[in-house]
Amino acid sequence: MAKISEAAKAECNRMQNKYKELLHSVEVEIDKLEKELTSTEDNFEAAKKKIDLAVLYIKASSFVATICYISIEHLDIRIENQLNDGRRLINKAIMLLEEALGDYGDDSLSLNDEVHEYLKDKFSDEWRYKFICSFGYVIDYFKFCYGENSKWLQNFIEIEGRLALLSKNIIDFKSYIKELSPEIEGYIYRVKLMNLAKSLISASAEQYRTKYELQDRRPDDMKMALNLTGTLRRIYVYLNEVEEAEEQKKIYDLWKKKLDTDLKAMKK
């Protein structure tokens, strides 16, 4: 490694300190909201606070990623411990969102109707779409900072799979069709979010299938791919997109047959 100049170190510290201050401010907000959450008895109000807290965790993780990126850019040093801290913040955010919105993918599209009824006027369609986009950007930021040869990249397959399901569960399916008119406020973002959810679920299913094929053929990976594919098919059925739904059924049946064949072979 080339010798790092004092000027480079000083500039790195100067830039990092700005984001460390921002990180500290968010951590203060997190502590405050966590205390409020512990004393919140109403389940719907708690769900709202969990989403707000998840937003803060994501914001904190983005500052951690930026601090790491500055180190990479100025010193050519990748500090994995810091990156792991940021990844843990992402996982905390996901857990909170799953508690608030659900983590399911293989059941009804409207298991969280009552939560959505409560949240309807608290998070606009525009906010929901931009939130999922920004969360995805933060995840991509971390993947870039880890580097393409990092052992931790495999962990992001699970993270992105959970985000894909959250992108579905943040949609109010009970009202979606009824509000599918350009004249109703938020129409563009409702459609954008639905298309984004379909895209994320499809990409995640393919990632799990590829992981199953190219690594150690863990049945759980293929089962997750099947879960996501089944979820995507249910969305297409709900939207009356018949050809797309039939295509997903073919994919599901093909992958299921592959898994069943492999499981039989493993038992021999």
Rank of each mutant, 00 (worst) to 15 (best):
Val138Trp: 06
Glu160Val: 00
Asp140Pro: 00
Tyr146Ser: 02
Leu163Tyr: 06
Arg162Tyr: 03
Gly136Leu: 11
Asp140His: 09
Ile159Gln: 01
Lys143Pro: 01
Lys143Phe: 09
Ile139Glu: 07
Asn155Gly: 15
Trp152Glu: 14
Phe135Ala: 06
Asn149Asp: 15
Gly136Thr: 08
Tyr137Gly: 09
Phe142Ala: 02
Tyr146Glu: 12
Leu165Ala: 05
Gln154Asn: 12
Leu153Phe: 09
Asp140Arg: 06
Ile157Val: 13
Tyr146Arg: 04
Ala164Asn: 08
Phe156Glu: 11
Asn155Tyr: 11
Gly147Ser: 14
Gly161Thr: 04
Arg162Ile: 01
Val138Asp: 10
Glu160Trp: 02
Tyr141Ser: 07
Val138Cys: 13
Leu153Thr: 04
Asn155Ala: 12
Gly161Cys: 06
Phe156His: 08
Ser134Gln: 12
Tyr146Thr: 08
Ile159Leu: 03
Glu160Lys: 03
Val138Phe: 11
Leu166Trp: 04
Tyr137Asn: 14
Glu148Leu: 12
Tyr146Ala: 04
Lys143Gly: 02
Tyr137Trp: 12
Tyr146Cys: 07
Tyr137Ile: 13
Ile159Arg: 04
Gly161Glu: 07
Gln154Met: 13
Cys145Gly: 08
Lys151Gly: 08
Ala164Glu: 05
Gly136Phe: 12
Asp140Lys: 06
Glu160Asn: 08
Leu153His: 09
Gly136Asp: 14
Gly136Val: 10
Phe156Asp: 10
Glu160Cys: 01
Asp140Trp: 06
Asn149Pro: 00
Lys143Ile: 13
Trp152Thr: 03
Glu148Thr: 09
Lys151Glu: 15
Ser134Val: 00
Glu160Pro: 00
Ser150Val: 03
Glu160Gly: 00
Glu148Ala: 13
Asn155Leu: 12
Ser150Thr: 05
Gly147Trp: 15
Tyr141His: 15
Cys145Asp: 15
Asn155Trp: 09
Gly136Glu: 14
Glu158Ile: 05
Ile159Asp: 03
Glu158Ala: 07
Gln154Phe: 12
Gln154Ser: 14
Leu153Val: 03
Ser134Thr: 10
Ile157Thr: 14
Glu158Gln: 11
Tyr137Pro: 00
Asn149Lys: 13
Tyr146Ile: 06
Tyr137Ala: 15
Phe135Thr: 08
Val138Lys: 05
Gly161Leu: 05
Phe135Gly: 00
Phe142His: 03
Asn149Ser: 14
Trp152Gly: 00
Phe144Gln: 12
Ser150Met: 02
Gly161Gln: 03
Asn149Val: 01
Ala164Val: 04
Gln154Leu: 13
Leu166Tyr: 04
Gly136Tyr: 10
Leu166Gln: 05
Gly161Arg: 01
Asp140Gly: 06
Tyr141Lys: 09
Ile157Lys: 07
Leu165Val: 10
Tyr141Met: 10
Cys145Ser: 15
Phe156Thr: 05
Leu163Pro: 00
Arg162Trp: 04
Leu165Ser: 07
Phe144Glu: 15
Leu165Glu: 10
Ser150His: 07
Ser134Met: 04
Ile139Pro: 00
Gly161Asn: 08
Leu153Ser: 06
Lys143Leu: 12
Ile157Phe: 10
Tyr146Lys: 04
Glu148Ser: 13
Phe142Ile: 01
Phe135Asp: 02
Lys143Ala: 06
